[in-house]
């Protein structure tokens, strides 16, 4: 069970959060311009990395804020958390 450091509330038990999948997938500004394949890429394709992964989490039973998490999926270590809109930490790229 993770301990997640919510950027707004501090360290909390994983049971207060829900996971929102891969981060930094931006909704296309002009979806109508996209081909089926390009739209499918946005809609369905996720990396599911073994290793360092950027994820979205929601403090759903807390402040209800969404934020980003850098997690190593091979050992579940959370390496960093940062707010929505903030640039991802470069050292994990």
């Amino acid at each position: 069970m993770f301990l997640i450091n919510c950027p707004f509330c501090g360290e909390r038990d994983q049971s207060e959060f829900s996971s929102g999948g891969e981060a930094h997938i931006v909704r296309p500004k002009q979806p109508t311009e996209l081909s089926d394949d390009e739209w499918a890429e946005y809609l369905f394709m996720r990396k599911n990395i073994k290793g360092v992964q950027f994820e979205r989490w929601n403090h759903v039973h807390g402040c209800r804020k969404w934020f980003n998490v850098v997690r190593d999926t091979s050992n579940d270590k959370i390496l960093s958390v940062y707010k929505m809109g903030e640039k991802p930490p470069v050292n994990y790229k």
Partner: peptide
């Protein structure tokens, strides 16, 4: 939850 998600992440 879904509406909050769009508000906070796509359309802040």
């Amino acid at each position: 939850s879904k509406l909050e998600d769009y508000l906070q992440t796509e359309w802040p």
